[in-house]
């Protein structure tokens, strides 16, 4: 499996990351914002795994990816819990109606 160069993976990861970032900034649905974060995390994971494939003498990249997946799981759980609590409070999941930080 040596016919795809490293750069291709990096391009794919960059594209997914930017899509995720734009979604995070642009969308107003808290659930979709959380999903965008997952996209960005996945893009980073892909980069790590691709570089690990390039420096194949060790497994640091893959190990790191493993941990990131675990953190992402925790983050998604907490994030969703916050969304649920927020919905209870304000009957909405729209982020632009949530500006408690301002007051």
């Amino acid at each position: 499996m040596t016919s795809i160069p490293l750069e291709y993976y990096l391009v794919v990861a960059a594209v997914i990351f930017v899509i995720g970032a734009c979604g995070f900034l642009a969308r107003r649905n808290a659930l979709i914002v959380l999903m965008s974060i997952e996209l960005m995390l996945n893009a980073v994971n892909l980069t790590l795994v691709a570089f690990n494939r390039w420096y194949a003498s060790h497994h640091v990249g893959q190990m790191f990816t493993f941990f990131i997946i675990a953190v992402a799981a925790a983050e998604a759980a907490v994030g969703l819990a916050i969304v649920v609590a927020l919905f209870r409070l304000k009957r909405t999941v729209r982020t632009d109606s949530v500006d408690l930080l301002k007051n």
Binding site: I16, L46, V49, A50, N52, R53, T65, I69
Partner: peptide, 21 residues
Amino acid sequence: IAGLYLTLSAQLLAAIQILVY
């Protein structure tokens, strides 16, 4: 992305990706 992991010889991570995500 799990598929991409497979092409990168990261079989375990591909499995975990499917399982966890």
